[in-house]
Amino acid sequence: MSHINLSAIHQRLDELSKLKKLKDDDSIKQALQKRGFSRRDFMKWAGAMTAFMALPASMTPVVARAAELSDRLPVIWLHLAECTGCSESLLRTDTPTIDSLIFDYISLEYHETLMAAAGWQAEHNLEHAIEKYKGQYILLVEGGVPTGDTEGYLTIGPHGTTGKQSAVKASENAAAIFAIGTCSSYGGIQAAKPNPSNSVGLSKVTDKKVINVPGCPPSEKNIVGNLLHYILFGTLPALDVFGRPKWAYGLRIHDLCERRGRFDAGEFVQSFGDEGARLGYCLYKVGCKGPYTFNNCSRERFNSHTSWPVQAGHGCIGCSEPDFWDTMGPFEEPVGDRLYDTVLGLGADNISDKIGIGVLALAGIGMAAHALIGVAVSKKDEEA
């Protein structure tokens, strides 16, 4: 990570510290203390977040400072065609995490679910925030965007503005744009066939660069982590082909799943409630889409890192992938039209019972080859 310019990061944070806080008589540091979080708790969180964003451990103090200064960050959050689940993921918890408390204290200039204003006052707040912080604010959009002849299916506010019009206008002068959740990233359930509202992801209606943070919903750490990344670097993170940050969506659910050992051993739940389900066997044969889904749920989990669907006994449904409503169903059956490449080359949907044997055999071959290479190198060294 030698390419990280710490001097530039400190300069950005110094400039951010000069901006006005949302609450003059309060701060993120004070809010954490009131909630019972010690400085030690906060630094442990900052260390975990540093590792989470694939940054060197030496940057922990810098990440902590960025989090403390995030209450100077003007943020506009739009709700389009969605269920508000992404906001709920972050804010509705009986034991607020440091992530959610930080989000409570960032400068939310506009958020329809949280603000008290309604009607004309809400519309004025949005217009005022866009103008006041032109070129500075962070735009987060939740929900798909109806387009075409059915654009009017989503009409918002007293001016009768469509969701698409609001999104395009807010995108024009945003410093950074994040599509929060699968609906905003790729259209979500609104875009499922036959897509009667012609819904699309945010990136389809603006020519500005959009960072997709998919999931139904995404974890709070994926939301807050992206904001912190922008505060630190002022640039977009490395993205995959679907516009997702690689640091959060670089691995498959399958790669770090706690049931992966069961998969490798060929131990599968055959039907919900059977003996395999009781023993925690792999859920592939009852529809888990973990091998095809890129996200960090298996590492980060939900509800203060308490659990996630696979731990609770239901397979991943692939919700962070584009068009998952159409491509991943039926959710409780293996994907019939997709072959999972195995050492036997026959496809996991037909021979999942044999996958474990194949993987173990491949591992054995690899270990044997490694041993042979080691012997050959050793003999060469002796001859030399």
Rank of each mutant, 00 (worst) to 15 (best):
F268C: 05
M328I: 08
F272Q: 09
E220S: 07
T84C: 15
R72F: 12
I357F: 15
F324K: 03
Q165V: 13
L16E: 13
L91A: 06
A192H: 05
W325V: 08
A368C: 09
K354C: 14
E333N: 10
A238M: 11
K285F: 09
T95N: 11
H305P: 03
E172A: 15
K221I: 09
M367T: 12
N212E: 03
R262I: 03
A129F: 01
K132P: 03
C86F: 02
C288N: 13
N173R: 06
H124K: 15
N295F: 12
T342Y: 02
E109K: 00
G85F: 01
M43A: 14
G345I: 04
L90Q: 08
M367C: 12
M53H: 00
L239T: 11
V241G: 04
F302Q: 05
N173T: 13
W308Q: 03
G336T: 05
G261R: 11
T162N: 03
G201Q: 03
L232V: 12
G313R: 00
N296I: 12
P214I: 00
Y153V: 13
L202A: 06
N5K: 02
I189A: 02
A170D: 00
S38P: 11
E82M: 05
G47W: 05
T113Y: 14
P96T: 14
L239P: 05
K34V: 15
L78M: 06
A122W: 01
L55S: 02
L256F: 04
N222S: 10
N350F: 12
D353Q: 11
T113R: 14
I355M: 04
V343C: 09
E258I: 10
N198C: 08
G280V: 15
D337E: 11
A176C: 04
K289F: 08
W45P: 07
A361P: 00
P245C: 07
E300A: 12
G143N: 08
I211F: 12
V375T: 06
S7H: 14
T182F: 01
G225Y: 08
E333Y: 13
D240T: 06
K134I: 01
V269I: 09
L13R: 00
D149Y: 03
A54R: 10
H229Y: 09
L55E: 01
K193V: 12
Y137L: 02
G345K: 11
V63S: 04
V343P: 09
S185D: 01
V310H: 07
P146S: 08
N222D: 07
I351K: 02
V241S: 10
P309L: 07
K193Y: 14
G243S: 07
H111A: 03
G143Y: 05
P146N: 08
S89V: 06
T206I: 10
K169M: 14
S70D: 00
A175Y: 01
R35A: 15
F242M: 02
G243D: 02
F178T: 02
P96C: 15
A368H: 15
